[in-house]
């Protein structure tokens, strides 16, 4: 599209931060359904992990809100924190295991996008 340059309204800051996603740009194009059984498993893993990640973020957000409003005891905060910390680590391990990236677990929530 020759008019691509016209689509830029404003850019501020260090674009190299988005460089990570730009590197994946060429890979974005082979975006095809395929019959490869390994890809099937990976697709399913991606779906499952995306949902787990969504729930994890929702629950963590909720815990943070309660922490802010002071309705949690120190002991509860510690227990919750440890659980979430372990869950977060486990998620990263699984994501890595299936050769997925953080960005692959991003779900477009539409109107629910404001929840997080």
């Amino acid at each position: 599209m020759s008019e691509l340059a016209d689509k830029l309204v404003d850019v501020e800051g260090d674009l190299h931060r988005i460089a990570g996603e730009l590197e994946h740009l060429p890979e974005a194009f082979p975006r095809r359904v395929n019959a490869d059984p390994e890809k099937v498993e990976k697709g399913l893993a991606q779906l499952v992990l995306t949902l787990v990640e969504l729930l994890r973020q929702l629950m963590e957000r909720q815990a943070l809100r309660r922490m802010e409003t002071g309705t949690l005891t120190d002991e509860q905060i510690e227990r919750l924190g440890e659980t979430f910390m372990k869950l977060d680590r486990r998620m990263r391990e699984l994501t890595e295991h299936f050769e997925l990236e953080e960005g692959d677990l991003n779900l477009n929530l539409g109107p629910l996008g404001d929840l997080l």
Binding site: L8, V9, E12, G13, L15, P111
Partner: peptide, 30 residues
Amino acid sequence: AATGLDRAPEATVVCTGPWPPYSFASEAQS
């Protein structure tokens, strides 16, 4: 408004457009 945004603490901000309304082609938005 887009060119005058306050991006402190330092953030990278990219604003693009106008695009045809790809993201609003269905009803699942606020």
